[in-house]
């Protein structure tokens, strides 16, 4: 299967998600998240070029919004929150990072095998559909296997990125207004989650979700 430039960037984004699974350092995770999201900004531009100027301006605006809001704004906010709480590492909960890494490779393989189920062949770039599904799986794996609330937000953002990738490469003609709204909803969700995490840290003196068992009746 020949990889197009878009498929190549999608695969690179999935690779960054796999690497995040093997990393325990919170700040490094956010840097990889920023890199992953910046790759989507690149995909936006490539999609704009491939539309032969029809929607070029809209794709450029979307790429800029993704770059500023999702690739820079959100990771910077999360870095600030982690610094404020002096959070350095998340060593994982049910599975250690090496095990999570292997699971993430499994997710990539699953995404590849699920291409026939999810790809819109007329839209081109079928590998991107598989990588989008892989990002969904990796995001879920990340959320389930990490200990800290802030890592759950990272997992959620990986899932969001997978969905964004699918929308960009397979759901051609998606109204840009809806795509923009999705980006800003993600920003608001992360801001609210960040504020809740800061409050959790103040009240519980930790942000370990496995220790939050007060409501388990």
């Amino acid at each position: 299967m020949n990889l197009s430039q878009i498929d190549f960037l999608a695969a690179a984004a999935a690779a960054t998600a796999v690497m995040m699974c093997g990393i325990t350092g919170i700040q490094t995770q956010f840097r990889f998240l920023a890199l992953q999201t910046a790759l989507f900004s690149g995909i936006c531009l490539l999609e704009g070029f491939s539309s032969h100027g029809q929607h070029m301006a809209q794709f450029i605006i979307l790429a800029a919004v993704v770059l500023i809001v999702k690739a820079a704004g959100i990771p910077l906010f999360l870095m600030w929150a982690a610094n404020k709480m002096s959070i350095i590492r998340d060593k994982g909960n049910t599975a250690s990072p090496p095990v999570t890494l292997i699971m993430a490779f499994g997710a990539i393989a699953a995404g590849y095998f699920l291409i026939p189920q999810f790809a819109v062949y007329s839209a081109g770039n079928p590998v991107s559909a598989g990588m989008a599904v892989a990002l969904l799986f990796i995001g879920m794996i990340f959320m389930v296997t990490r200990r800290l609330a802030i890592s759950q937000v990272t997992g959620f953002l990986i899932i969001e990125n997978g969905i964004f990738l699918y929308g960009l490469t397979q759901a051609k003609g998606m109204p840009h207004l809806v795509e923009m709204a999705v980006v800003f909803e993600a920003l608001i969700a992360v801001l609210i989650a960040g504020l809740v995490i800061l409050r959790i840290n103040r009240n519980f003196e930790h942000i370990d979700v496995t220790q939050m068992r007060g409501l388990r009746h």
């Binding site: 879920m140 959320m143 609330a149 759950q152 937000v153 959620f156 899932i159 969001e160 969905i163 969700a189 609210i192 989650a193 809740v196 995490i197 409050r199 959790i200 009240n203 519980f204 979700v209 939050m212 007060g214 409501l215």
Partner: peptide, 19 residues
């Protein structure tokens, strides 16, 4: 503390669900 825990659970589970 309990309302904070409930809020976190609500926010994260519903956000992932809605994703």
């Amino acid at each position: 503390k309990s309302s904070l825990e409930a809020t976190w659970k609500y926010l994260i589970l519903c956000s992932v669900g809605i994703a």
